[in-house]
Computed example of a mutant assay.
Amino acid sequence: MLGDDEVLKAVQSHIESRGKPLAGPLPGASAITWHSLLKGQIVRSIESRSEKKRLHRGPLDLSDRPVYDTLGDHRVPPPRDPAKPYSRKLVRRGSIDDRLCACGNGVVRCRRCEGEGTIRCAPRQRCHSCRDTTCCLLCGGDGRSALKPAGKQAGPPAHTAADTADRGRCMECGEPGVACVTCRGRGRVTCPTCQGEGSKPCPDCAQDGTVTHTHCAGTGRTVEWTEGVITRTPSTEEVRLPESGPLSWARKLADQHAAWTPTTLADDDPERARVEKDFGATLQPLLRTHDQEIARRTELAYVRFAKVAVHEHAHRIYYVFPTHGRPTVVGRPSPKRLWQIAGIAALVIVLLTLVNGLLA
């Protein structure tokens, strides 16, 4: 762990290595502030248990599944790796009901045709070829013309060429050129499915009279049982402390230059006390046990670094990070220097604007 003396020595060496000798030693001519960063993730294993009735159509061997009496009391070893999903199916003791189906052989009588293999069909159907649904322009399909008074034979009415196109002789009234050529004025045609027989094959059973039994899916056997399912789902929570603030720039530098110290925050972790001291109030909610959590893995990394302001170099801020060897020092413009640069840039823009205006 870095100390004040080691930090000041590293900063002084850094400044002098760049050809900027100091008037005297840094102590008393500098200010040190210490900061801490924490990053990583917490992986939790969240367990859920459910129970429901199951039905399998056909034979099924359940002998390889664990048996339980009360699902909530069934013990399962904790996961070795909380990040690995886990699911296990169990069978409640005494719940297996393996039996032959009531259908006997997997088939039942067809309800649509009542086992006959055929269903009723209309021998004759409405003709779909009649123009404007009028099978005969003269008699309408009943063999009698409204233009023929009783006891008299009147001539056919005058029709246009469009009316009589594709028209034939009516088989009801005998008039040529007025009837639908498909039904010949009758308005109905023989059913193409049953050919006028009045019955057709049942589409459900294909004339067999029987269909597959839905309950057993044609197997003639069913297995029912109560199934318990234990599922463990990993949940990962990212840790980044502090979550926001002025250390965002320093965090980038720490990721590049610092040697982060791994910590699990276990009871025997030497870094636990310091981490809890630095982030106690913010860290506690992250470490709180979640609902249905049965295991966790904490993978965190911690770094404590120094921020040094040197009076002789007020325009610079020096960040000192611990490494596996000598500390690493990174210099950056101070906030005051950044404001000066921003002010100069703004002034240049204003002057350029005025010059362009004068030249225009």
Score class of each variant (00 low, 15 high):
G3H: 04
D4S: 11
E6N: 10
V11L: 00
E16N: 07
P21K: 01
A29F: 00
S30M: 03
S30V: 01
I42L: 10
E51M: 11
K52I: 03
R57E: 14
L62Q: 04
L71M: 11
G72I: 08
D73C: 05
P77L: 03
P79Y: 09
P79A: 09
P82V: 05
A83H: 14
I96C: 01
R99M: 07
C103V: 14
R111E: 15
E114N: 08
T134R: 15
C139K: 08
G140P: 10
S145A: 15
A146K: 12
G155T: 04
G155S: 10
P156Q: 08
H159I: 04
T160R: 09
T160Q: 05
D166T: 05
G168A: 06
C183S: 10
R184E: 15
G187V: 12
T193D: 11
C194S: 04
E197W: 00
D208E: 14
V211G: 09
V223I: 04
G228E: 09
T233E: 15
G245C: 02
S248E: 13
T261E: 12
P262R: 11
D269H: 04
D269E: 03
P270D: 09
R272E: 06
I294V: 15
L300F: 02
V303F: 08
R304H: 09
V308K: 00
A309E: 13
H313C: 03
R316V: 02
V320L: 06
P322S: 02
T328P: 01
V329I: 10
G331Q: 13
P335M: 11
G343H: 13
L351P: 01
L354S: 02
